[in-house]
């Protein structure tokens, strides 16, 4: 486990000069991932904010090999790269002592939605890669449209809080659960505020052979209608309210990596975000209750499951 001081001696693999918004959560996530992964990685990225803002021709912020192909195929793309690597390794075309790791990146649009099939295929086939979803809860790149990761009640540009419909009417999809059903050796949820935990998870994931998955919350102040300097504080609150529990599942066994001493009410996190503003009107109180109940249920189930899976 590296300390910050140790990490600070590593090479910065995401160069400055990228054009993500000031205060973007995704770039913090990516910097931390690359610091953990080191230089010997090839990265694919789905179309989205991260991709467009870090590789505007003739500039790139990537100091590792980087490939953007399309929106829905970051997983299939990196699997293809990995397949070529396996072949070249097998045929002795690459240096024996040179080991390369493979990371696929995608936002929630590119992972939960349009890229789900490609991800599922890659996980099932057992390629040796890590897929990281940076989840900001909507299609931010095209202008904040709802995704299946958008929480119930959140206002987006395609699920606006109108006079009749109070924002998104569906619950968010639990992608981490879906990924778990692929029985891959390692998957986890992480948050950039807890850099230590995220760093550890990336290092662990990359030390395991086979498909791995990380779901990382990545606040977007444009979409969340929050403060420009709140990416870290909001990701911390998401964890302290148990909206975004930090846990990992290694070979089927669940470990909760952080249990808040005082689990905060979900509204503590929500009230800082304009996308939930309309939910604080008296007529929408039932939605707040629904959301809280959903969070409590998931969290309690995680606690129970962890208890059951404890070694005797």
């Amino acid at each position: 486990m590296a300390t910050l001081k140790e990490l600070s001696k590593r090479e910065e693999l995401l160069a400055g000069g990228h054009r993500l918004c000031a205060g973007c959560g995704a770039s913090i996530v990516v910097r931390q991932i690359l610091l953990a992964a080191g230089k010997n990685v090839v990265v694919s990225c789905s179309t989205g904010c991260l991709e467009v803002a870090t590789s505007i021709y003739p500039y790139t912020s990537w100091r590792v090999p980087f490939f953007h192909s399309a929106f829905e195929n970051s997983a299939a793309t990196i699997c293809g790269v990995e397949a070529m690597y396996q072949l070249q390794k097998r045929k002795g075309k690459l240096p024996v002592d040179e080991e390369i790791k493979f990371i696929g990146l995608g936002g929630d649009g590119g992972t939960y939605d349009i890229g789900l099939q490609s991800l599922s295929g890659g996980l099932e086939r057992g390629h040796d890669f890590l897929f990281v979803c940076y989840d900001n809860g909507a299609y931010m790149n095209t202008g904040i449209q709802r995704s299946s990761a958008t929480p119930l009640g959140a206002a987006t540009t395609t699920s606006p809080a109108g006079k009749v419909i109070p924002g998104k009417t569906q619950y968010r999809k639990d992608l981490t659960d879906i990924v778990e059903a692929h029985h891959i050796p390692y998957l986890a949820q992480a948050s950039p505020h807890n850099w230590k935990d995220l760093n550890k998870k990336v290092e662990k994931a990359l030390s395991i052979r086979g498909p791995k998955f990380l779901n990382v919350i990545a606040p977007c102040h444009r979409g969340w209608r929050s403060g420009i300097n709140e990416a870290i504080s909001l990701s911390k609150l998401a964890v302290d309210t148990c909206f975004w529990p930090l846990y990992e599942i290694e070979n089927g066994k669940l470990t909760i990596n952080y249990k808040p001493k005082n689990k905060k009410p979900l509204t503590e996190w929500m009230k800082l975000q304009g996308r939930f503003k309309h939910l604080f009107k008296p007529e929408n109180e039932h939605i707040l209750q629904q959301l809280q109940q959903g969070i409590d249920c998931k969290w309690n189930n995680l606690l129970k499951r962890e208890e059951v899976e404890k070694p005797c």
Binding site: L4, K5, S8, G16, G17, A22, G23, I28, R31, I232
Partner: peptide, 30 residues
């Protein structure tokens, strides 16, 4: 500040903050 900077703008040298590189800092205030 270094680990949370979205813009790789904080320069660290010998485990200490050297400076904030204003070439890249977008002023988010994180």
């Amino acid at each position: 500040c270094w680990i949370y900077c979205p813009d790789s703008a904080i320069q660290v040298e010998n485990e200490k903050i050297k400076e904030i590189d204003l070439k890249y800092c977008k002023g988010c205030g994180i």
